[in-house]
Amino acid sequence: MNSVILRTAARVLLPLLVIFSIILLLRGHNVPGGGFVGGLLVASAVVLYAMAEGPRKARAIMRIDLQVLIGIGLLIGLAAGLIGVAAGEPFMAGLWFEFPAPGLGEIKVGTPLLFDIGVYVTVLAVCLHMILSLAEDA
């Protein structure tokens, strides 16, 4: 689609949507949100960019082959399960680490977040791979 409005809007919206998706991912542990919606949101942001600039450019801004990214996302999920094993807990056990962050107080980070990041990456890569493949075919 060759439209100046769409291209300008896509360029401005893309970083905003990515930031919003990360917020969704982080708040997802206790309130609505999480890796799945976050991943979908990034995918839709890139699809918006693809509509403006074409699927080839959209693949180019991803920098990494989407097929490989699917594998990486799944491996992150697996790693989240294996961290528990490494710490002597059962597979998939949730472990929490607390550390002070300046200006934010105590921050608790756990393996469920890592798992969620894996979901985020997998969902975004799978969706983009499917949609861009279809778009390239057309």
Partner: peptide, 10 residues
């Protein structure tokens, strides 16, 4: 693990 590593090494 093997399957996922194979996907990464696509």
């Amino acid at each position: 693990t093997a399957g996922l590593l194979c996907v990464v090494a696509w």
